[in-house]
Computed example of a mutant assay.
Amino acid sequence: MSADSNKKKIVHAHLPADEEFTTTLTAGSHELLADEPTSVEGGKDKGPDPYDYLLMSLGTCTVMTVKMYANRKGWEVDDMYMELRHNKRHDEDCENCDDPKSKIDVIEKELIIEGDFTQKQLDRMLDISKKCPVHRTLMSDMKIKSFISRK
């Protein structure tokens, strides 16, 4: 979203030896915690889990993108919210499959906008919400290159 969006981003995730899952995340000068819920053995629920962060990333990018669009159009948005849900389910063409591997990840995004808008404006903002950079990244063919090193 920022002007530096084409630069390579570096984020650190540190899981110290004395922690089971509580991980310190740093991005520039910002520090966050991630953890597993207490329902997972060893989880202490000290922070959102990794899928929560994925949804938060998609949600923040989406509302920022829609807000930028609305501002350019001169549309006054009173407030904007995103509710996101993630689950794994069988693809529509595989409703009777018994194989657990046939499930796909599904993210549901609900954009809630307060303001005086026509249905046409709301429909356009919904279209724009699907164009945020994180949404496009998640929907694209992606490569993740993994390396390992020792310290």
Rank of each mutant, 00 (worst) to 15 (best):
P100Q: 04
M139R: 07
H12P: 00
L84M: 07
L58K: 01
K9W: 13
M142R: 15
V11Y: 05
D116K: 08
M125V: 06
E76K: 14
I144S: 09
G115L: 01
V106D: 02
S140R: 04
E108Y: 13
L122K: 12
P48T: 14
D45S: 11
L55N: 02
D98C: 10
R124W: 03
K9Q: 14
K7Q: 14
E95M: 14
Y51M: 10
D78P: 07
W75P: 08
L55R: 01
K130N: 13
L126F: 02
V134C: 06
S5W: 09
S149D: 12
K9H: 14
D35T: 02
F147C: 11
K131T: 14
V134D: 01
R89Y: 00
H90T: 08
E95F: 09
L111K: 02
L138W: 01
E41T: 14
S140W: 01
G42T: 03
E114T: 12
I113W: 05
Y53G: 07
A13L: 09
E19V: 03
P48V: 14
T23P: 03
G42F: 01
N6A: 15
H86V: 07
E108C: 00
M68V: 04
D79T: 12
I112P: 03
D93V: 05
G59A: 13
V134P: 01
G59Y: 02
T38Q: 10
E92W: 10
V11D: 00
S39Q: 09
T118E: 02
R136I: 09
K101H: 13
Y69M: 06
S146H: 12
L84D: 00
L55W: 00
K145V: 15
E110Y: 05
D91M: 09
A70M: 06
A70C: 02
P16S: 07
Q121Y: 02
C61V: 05
E110H: 15
D127V: 13
E31H: 13
K131L: 11
E20I: 13
E108M: 10
L122P: 04
P133W: 04
D123Q: 08
K130G: 07
M125A: 03
R72F: 06
C132H: 08
L33H: 00
D141T: 09
M56V: 15
I128A: 02
M142F: 11
T26G: 00
T23W: 00
F21Q: 05
S140G: 06
I148D: 13
K88V: 08
M68T: 10
D52F: 06
G59E: 01
C61S: 05
K120M: 09
K46L: 12
M82G: 01
A27P: 00
C94T: 12
P133H: 08
D35K: 03
E36C: 07
E20Q: 12
V63N: 04
H86Y: 12
L55M: 05
C94Q: 14
D18P: 04
L15V: 09
V40W: 10
A3I: 08
E20Y: 10
N6I: 11
Q121K: 07
R124H: 08
S129I: 01
M80R: 02
E76T: 15
K145F: 08
L25N: 06
I104S: 04
G28Y: 07
K44F: 06
H30W: 11
S2W: 08
A34C: 10
N6Q: 15
V11H: 04
M139S: 13
T26L: 01
L32S: 07
I113S: 00
Y51C: 02
S57A: 14
L58I: 09
K143V: 14
R72P: 06
K130I: 05
R124C: 03
P100C: 04
A3C: 03
